[in-house]
Amino acid sequence: MRYEAPETLEAATALLAAEMGIARVLAGGTDLLVQMKTDMVDPALVVDLKRIGEMRTITKAVDGFHIGAAVSGAELKEQVELKQHWPGLVEAANLIGSTQIQGRATLGGNLCNASPAADSIPALIAANATVSIFGPKGRRQLAVEDVVLAPRKTALDKGEFVVSFHIPLRAKGMGDAYLRFIPRTEMDIAVVGAGIGLKTDPSGVITAARIGLGAVASRPLHVKAAGDALVGSKLDKAAVDKMVDAVRAACKPIDDKRGTIEFRIKVAGVIAARAAAIAYDRART
């Protein structure tokens, strides 16, 4: 196995594109090293992206936040402004693993590991995030919900990697939240996860809503119908029930060691409703 730590996007792409064997990018390594240890992958090349400046910085611009894909969860948590704008997203990112994992794990890694249960993805969907991808053909943007295609499979082509996330600024009347269900209080992979981003008008009526779900299908979902169910409401019971129905209808989970199909479908609705209540509160304050 070869290890490279390039300092530019171009150099990283060149290395990845030229490798004939299995190449992996390394950011926080909290998934990659486990996969290597358990013989799930035996890469010929590992490209450490942490020396590339753009990937390690968070900037706030007029169009929103640009979060480097290799920024760790612990660093993200310390960004007071980001937390004020998108508390749900920061909370989701901070649910990935333990304090120790937070010291290394990144948003880019959580996305590109392409697990249906990744905590940050539903929250990124709720926040309407896009990703900036760099590759042999240059840069392109993709909506976050379009990156993961299936377990361990992304829309990235050979030589491509995610450089940063773009998240719009939170306007007045917007709020987000992410909740997940796990059997313990920490250290588990989400059995279901729900991220909600809401926009309300001054009277409290929801004018837009985005709902992302994790661990209920072969990839994280953006459930448009669920968000639409809330629009026009003040999060009254009827609207929430409709949203919950839409959430459950979108779930196509599996039975596994972490939960049953019935449980996931049921609890996805419960968690989404609870997250919506938090997001609504945040939108109104």
Partner: peptide
Amino acid sequence: YVYGTDGKLQNAGFLDYRIPVASD
């Protein structure tokens, strides 16, 4: 211990063999 129908243990690690953590 969670087994698959193939007779193999599915949760041979502390991630999915869930012993209590401090916050529980």
